[in-house]
Design a protein around this nucleic acid. Structure first.
Lengths: 153, 153
DNA sequence: CCATAATGACATTATACATGTCAAAATGAC
DNA sequence: GTCATTTTGACATGTATAATGTCATTATGG
């Protein structure tokens, strides 16, 4: 059927749009960090702590789905910059909780607010339903790709 | 308005889905390359040549939107593996056209066919309209992000 | 109490690019 | 045809984002 082929080609285009989209998004985030002392990866740590509260390094790594060794590096930078501080962890005495300092909280809140505003600008002439649909499709496709990647030859 | 905020958050989620989607896609492509002598970047060269015919290195770089110096490296690998060969370029005698060999053509056709089939599998229980909508949204968002990245402070 | 797991710290390696430089040669303007 | 400019390949170096390996220390759970 033509339709099946058409659909597969649309899907193919969609999947390959993920790279330009990601690159454009990262460029925007980076541009928005100009003037702050933050790098993109430090921002990622602050955002996690803002959204989910104080976390240990391994917990942050799990959320970001990257290895704890690299997250340790990222976190150490945020500690050195004074945006994050260690607090004792009642659940594990050797793995302190990373917690936003006042400076860090203020900074990340400003950045997230600015980014949200940008999203509103972008969404201005886009249909809300369409955005929701797109999000669902992307999630579904990602899930299927992940399951297919494993059991391939 | 709540709707505006909701939309912005959906958009935010969508933008950040681009990374997992891309990673899942790359993992799939890589898995599909198991057993061949191809790497992901060599595959990219072959696909360009299959879709657009014989090209010079700078032309391939323009299509991939990466620097010619890196493309040169990728292309050299495909030449060394015998999937691509140089042919004289009537338009520029110092910049030969890269052309698929029979082996290269056979290989990339097989791979692309397999990938397309995978797309059909994934698309099986997805609505065609929704996929098209998602593609449009992703393109629109990418475009806006690109334009915003530039004229930010 | 003790085996096992978790953690931070540090080192090495890989990947995917960007950037810089250079010489040779091709092209284009005149 | 001459000459300035551009293009190209080749090579070298730099950088960001990770994965992976290893180790000593210390928790934790049985």
């Amino acid at each position: 059927m033509y339709n099946v082929i058409m659909e597969a080609e649309h899907l193919h285009s969609l999947v390959w749009m993920s790279r330009p989209l990601m690159q454009a998004a990262e460029a925007c985030v980076e541009a928005g960090l100009q003037g702050t002392e933050l790098t993109v990866r430090m921002r990622a740590v602050l955002e996690i702590l803002q959204r989910h509260g104080a976390q240990t390094v391994p917990e942050i790594a799990a959320r970001l789905e990257i290895k704890r060794q690299y997250v340790q590096l990222m976190v150490n930078e945020t500690l050195a910059s004074g945006f994050v501080e260690q607090r004792p962890n009642p659940r594990h005495s050797r793995s302190p909780l990373m917690s936003l300092t006042d400076r860090g909280r203020e900074l990340i809140e400003g950045i997230v607010t600015k980014e949200l505003a940008m999203m509103q600008t972008i969404g201005a002439d886009l249909n809300d339903e369409d955005i929701a649909t797109a999000l669902n499709v992307m999630r579904a496709v990602t899930g299927k790709l992940k399951s297919l990647a494993g059991n391939q030859t």
